[in-house]
Amino acid sequence: MFEISEKKKLAQDVYSVWVEAPKIAAHAQPGQFVIVIAEEDGERIPLTIVDKTEDKIRLIFQVVGKSTTKMSTFENGDSFAHVVGPLGNPSEIDYYGTVLLIGGGIGVAPILPILKALKEKGNRVITIMGARTADLLILEDEFTQLSDKLIVTTDDGSKGMKGLVTDGMKKVVSDGEKIDKAWAIGPVIMMKFATKTAQELGFPIIVSLNPIMVDGTGMCGGCRVTVGDSVKFACVDGPEFEGELVEWDELLKRLGQYKVEEKESLEEKKEKNVQKRF
């Protein structure tokens, strides 16, 4: 179980894997995630389910620290020690009319299943894919194929529109599109500004939050976020919320909680590798 196949490098430090997990594949819906433990006694990390077949799920991850570095060394035929899910609430897929989907960086991956589901419901879907530079763009083929309209933005202008996803949002509206509903998934800071822009442009926006998680089943509250007037656990109440209700600055600060420890962990790993070599 949890055997990896079709491992692919999508961009620098970004990998796509298919993982054998029949029970999860049978029940997963767009917007849900899994918790992965790469090796026994490793940490539990949340990853969105990007796609599925009958008995496999597709995960896309970016190497940002110790666990994801470890995961990137797994090859076809290797297995993750544990994968649990599908967790969280599914996205609210319905017929809205014209839907704008905004993905930033690795955040375009969790947008993909939502896009597919919205298309199936007959929505007209406009997608904005944002990346720092052209070579960090992922899943462009899939998005080109599925979207009714696709806008690519890069910070340095190396591909598509020069600028941020929020510039893309403004362009879509100034081009005369009337947006009925939007989703934004990506770094917190991007979701925060996408929400602000959506409010200015006058359409509702859903965001998928990515706080620190441990169990992912509502038993610890590590992933708590303030939404509106109440504290929610993103793993069971979310991960999707209405953007305008989210306390963004608190979420940003909470995400930085273990910076020191994360660095220490990575350095420890390097040391271990050094020891192994000699």
Partner: peptide
């Protein structure tokens, strides 16, 4: 959360284990 990190995830052995 505190006890799960410490007991289940053995965070008292961090950074030998991965959970801080």
């Amino acid at each position: 959360e505190f006890l799960t990190r410490v007991n289940l995830m053995k965070a008292y052995e961090f950074p030998l284990v991965d959970t801080p």
